[in-house]
Amino acid sequence: MRLLTEIGLVFTRQTTLSLRSPAWIIIGLVQPVLYLALFGPLLGAVAEVASFPAGDSWQVFVPGLLVMQSLFSAAFVGFGVIAEQRNGVLERMRVTPVSRLALLLGRVFRDILVLLAQSLVLLAAAFAFGLRAPVPGMLIGLGLIVLLGTGVSSLSYALALRLGDENALAPIVNSVTMPVLLLSGVLLPLSFAPAWLSGIASVNPFLYVVEATREAFLSDYTAQALMLGTAVAAGFAALGLFAGTRAFQRQVT
């Protein structure tokens, strides 16, 4: 009960502050719509190729975009906490008895709220472009995105608190998100990939989430890929929360 109140406190403050400088949220909304508009039309031709996965090009492309959005939206949240660390606000919160998990979860929930808003905009835009997918499938997809976003944003906080410096965080985040994205089959399905490349990609949790979301969009709710992707996303979220809580707990050593 106390924990919920505390999460609520942190969440409310973080959300209020985000709304006061909404530039990041707006950029996050515009980016996937640009991808849809500028990249989506190219896919029609690619979808004719034999090794293209089942479903029409939108059913393949939009799940990937959702995952990409959750990666980019959540990977950079650590910058905010570095600013809070720098101006002493975080320290001031850490001398209160508030639970360290609440310090993390209040922030993560704010990030999830932002991510869900962005995802809904993306789905609405995709519908306008021609995506047709079942509502339960899209809801499952959003659930997977929430798990993934939870993991990514927690890890971003953990890394940010450990590094304590934007200039150290930026190159790491950039150099991690880029291969993760390419190796998740977001832009082009990995069914195109040569064996060595799909071998490397098989250790990328994002790949499984993308594939699971695609199954959900095809309303194949019992597909093995969907089960596997859900388990991977849940495990990833748990790992992130563990690392993130540890980072908020840690005294400077």
């Binding site: 502050l17 101006n87 606000v89």
Partner: peptide
């Protein structure tokens, strides 16, 4: 603390 501890946007 010796150094500031407030958020400029609050």
């Amino acid at each position: 603390a010796q150094a500031s501890g407030v958020d400029p946007a609050c």
